[in-house]
C-alpha cells in the first residue's frame, strides 16, 4: 500500500493534540504501532487508535478522513512525505514543518504553518487568523516554505515572517504581513486595513485597492518582473482562475514602507 490511511471513528470531546500524525512519527511502524502512538486529549493521554482506524503501514504519505476541526498540530515537524486531509482541520497544522506537503481539502483553523521553515501547505477552503506567523512573544515567524490558501484568511497573515511565500486566493483580514522581516504575501482578493504595519523588508501584493498607513509612501507605478514569475508559479499551482493575463502583464502601484522602520518593504497594488 502506498499510503497510510487514518479514518476518524470517534470525534474528540475536547481538543486533541496529535503531533504524532506526521510522517516523521509513523515512519516504519505497523498499523498497531501507529494506533499506539500517543496523543493528548485535553489533559488525558490517549492513543491514535482511540480516535482513528489505521490502515496501511507507516509509509510517509498519509491520508486522513473525517472532520478534524478539533484536532491540532497535524503534520508537526514533518520534513518529507505528504498528508492529505479530506475535510476540515484544527489549529497549528504543519507546525514547525521543514519539508513535504500538506493538502487540506476543507477549511483550516488559526495558525496554519506557524514557524515553518520549508515545505508546502495547501488549503482549498478558508483559513483562520495568524497564517504562517510567529507565536506570541517570538520575534520571527516562518523562515521558508509556501502556504497557499484558496479561500479567505483572517488577521495577521505572515506576522513577523522572515522568508517564504504566502498566497491567499480570497480576501485577507487586517494587519497582513505585520512586522514582516522579509518574504512575500500575495492577496488575490481584498485586503483589510493596516497591511505591512512595522514591516522592515519584504513584499505584499494585492489585486484590489487597499488602505495605506500614513507611514507608507507612494513610489511609482511599474511592472515588476519578479512578480510575473511568482504569479506564473501560482497559476501552475491551482490559482489559474484567480490570476489573469491582466495581472501578469499589468502595472502595479508601489508603496514603500514602513517609514517608521527601515522603509525597505513594499506593498504592490494592482492598477487596472
Amino acid at each position: 500500500m502506498t499510503t497510510t490511511f487514518l479514518r476518524l471513528h470517534t470525534q474528540p470531546d475536547v481538543p486533541l493534540e496529535a503531533e504524532a500524525i506526521s510522517p516523521v512519527a509513523i515512519a516504519g511502524l505497523s498499523e498497531l504501532g501507529i494506533e499506539h502512538l500517543p496523543v493528548l486529549h485535553g489533559n488525558i493521554k490517549a492513543k491514535i487508535g482511540d480516535f482513528f482506524k489505521v490502515t496501511g503501514k507507516g509509509v510517509p504519505d498519509i491520508l486522513l478522513e473525517g472532520d478534524l476541526g478539533k484536532i491540532k498540530m497535524i503534520g508537526a515537524g514533518m520534513s518529507a512525505g505528504s498528508i492529505t486531509i479530506e475535510g476540515n482541520v484544527g489549529m497549528h497544522v504543519g507546525i514547525g514543518m521543514s519539508g513535504g506537503e500538506i493538502l487540506v481539502k476543507g477549511n483550516a483553523s488559526d495558525w496554519v504553518g506557524p514557524e515553518m521553515s520549508g515545505g508546502r501547505i495547501v488549503v482549498k477552503g478558508n483559513a483562520g487568523h495568524m497564517i504562517g506567523s510567529a507565536f506570541r512573544g517570538q520575534a520571527i515567524g516562518i523562515t521558508g516554505g509556501e502556504i497557499f490558501i484558496h479561500g479567505d484568511a483572517k488577521n495577521e497573515i505572515g506576522n513577523s515572517m522572515r522568508r517564504g511565500l504566502i498566497a491567499i486566493g480570497g480576501d485577507a483580514g487586517d494587519f497582513t504581513a505585520v512586522n514582516m522581516r522579509a518574504g512575500t504575501v500575495i492577496v488575490m482578493g481584498k485586503m483589510g486595513v493596516r497591511a505591512g504595519a512595522g514591516m522592515i523588508r519584504g513584499t505584499v501584493v494585492c489585486f484590489e485597492d487597499a488602505p495605506m498607513l500614513p507611514s507608507f509612501e507612494f513610489s511609482c507605478k511599474y511592472q515588476p518582473l519578479f512578480l510575473r514569475l511568482y504569479l506564473i508559479r501560482l497559476q501552475e499551482n491551482g490559482f489559474e482562475n484567480k490570476i489573469t493575463d491582466q495581472h501578469l502583464n499589468g502595472k502595479y502601484r508601489r508603496y514603500s514602507g514602513d517609514g517608521i522602520e527601515l522603509n525597505r518593504g513594499e506593498i504592490l497594488l494592482f492598477s487596472r
Binding site: R194, A197, M212, L213, P214, S215, F216, E217, G259, I260, N263
Partner: peptide
C-alpha cells in the same frame, strides 16, 4: 493610524 503617524513624526519621518 494616528499613533503610527505620531511615531513617524517623532522619528522625523514623512507621513502621508
Amino acid at each position: 493610524e494616528v499613533l503610527w503617524a505620531l511615531r513617524a513624526l517623532v522619528k522625523g519621518k514623512r507621513i502621508s
